[in-house]
């Protein structure tokens, strides 16, 4: 017998997790945000070509159906919002295939919440408030920084993320010891931004600060709305602490037609690049068609939050049974 049956996270770590969950529930109870549960196993899933999902089979002869483990509870939660739930939150597992590393476990815990009638600024404020509440005990020096994507990018690299110049991007990457970036990213502006942001911006972010990065470029809008006064930007922000990505917030896209078009584009991209086929979630589109109230929403990875709170350098140390011995 080996010792593999033993948990990786120690008892103190498990207690810290339990306390974190209790504090989150109290935080939202005080604000009248309703806790909900939605299915992890669904008929459809997200089409994002950068997210790889797990497929499972439902068997009940003669019935047979492919079901997907959710990469996030977003679509189901938006169906609740369209049905008039008001502001809601959920703490659940999310599953992402082929993601494993120091900051990734294929099965992880998400806190996702939606605030009806909140704009992005109000949501950013609430995110900072929640993180302060959760982390002030372990990180007394913690502060809040709010900066636009463009400003932060220019500060860290001297390059303008909204104005694509392959030559300038390449020269900078080369000077930072990444000559391979040019062949990797070629003429793909969005890919260049992913590369430069993860290699040269995240590690240069202020330490000991909840860093709220807003106004992401429109080419990285995902499920966010575009800015009404500057269509180069999207109503999306991300939150980082010590360069670690914790969550993604949007002023949610509610235009069913635009959403349908983004699905179609992503499905076509998947087909063209030989990625796993996926159908768009028609029930979600129907809900949007009926009407999603104006709302802002965010998902935060709780395992990474625990890593930061306990100063761990690997996600394994905050999980009772990480992927390798699940």
């Amino acid at each position: 017998m080996t010792a593999d049956w033993r948990p990786v996270a120690d008892l103190q770590q498990l207690q810290q997790r339990a306390q974190l969950l209790a504090t989150i529930r109290r935080f939202f109870a005080e604000r009248n945000v309703l806790e909900v549960e939605t299915p992890l196993l669904c008929r459809a899933t997200g089409t994002d070509p950068n997210l790889d999902f797990f497929t499972s089979q439902f068997h009940n002869p003669p019935h047979k159906k492919d079901l997907f483990l959710q990469t996030s509870p977003e679509f189901a939660m938006k169906r609740l919002l369209a049905a008039g739930s008001g502001s809601i939150y959920q703490i659940c597992k999310a599953f992402r295939n082929s993601e494993v590393g120091r900051f990734h476990n294929p099965e992880f815990t998400l806190l996702e919440w939606y605030r009806v009638e909140f704009n992005l600024q109000q949501l950013m404020h609430e995110v900072a408030e929640l993180l302060m509440t959760l982390l002030s005990g372990s990180m007394p020096q913690l502060s809040v920084t709010q900066v636009s994507y463009q400003q932060l990018f220019i500060e860290c690299t001297g390059l303008d993320p909204l104005c694509f110049s392959r030559l300038a991007y390449h020269q900078f990457s080369k000077s930072q010891g990444h000559p391979e970036a040019d062949s990797l990213c070629a003429d793909n502006h969005a890919l260049w931004l992913d590369f430069l942001f993860s290699h040269c911006v995240q590690n240069a972010m202020p330490r000991n600060s909840i860093c709220l990065v807003h106004d992401y470029p429109a080419i990285q809008s995902s499920l966010a709305r575009l800015h009404t006064d500057d269509t180069r930007l999207s109503e999306r922000f991300e939150v980082f602490i010590n360069g670690v990505e914790l969550g993604n917030g949007f002023f949610e896209l509610s235009d069913a037609e635009e959403q349908n078009a983004r699905f179609e584009r992503e499905i076509a991209y998947r087909q063209k690049h030989g990625l796993a086929a996926v159908e768009k979630d028609q029930l979600f589109l129907d809900a949007l068609q009926t009407g999603l109230p104006d709302c802002s929403g965010i998902a935060i990875g709780l395992d990474r939050l625990l890593m930061i709170a306990s100063d761990c350098d690997s996600i394994e140390h905050v999980l009772a049974f990480p992927f390798a011995n699940a």
Binding site: D48, N50, E99, G101, L191, D194, S198, E245
Partner: peptide, 14 residues
């Protein structure tokens, strides 16, 4: 070998 992936974006190995 370090796996790097933004929540919405391309995954890299550094």
């Amino acid at each position: 070998n370090e796996f790097v992936k933004p929540g919405k974006g391309q995954a890299f190995n550094r």
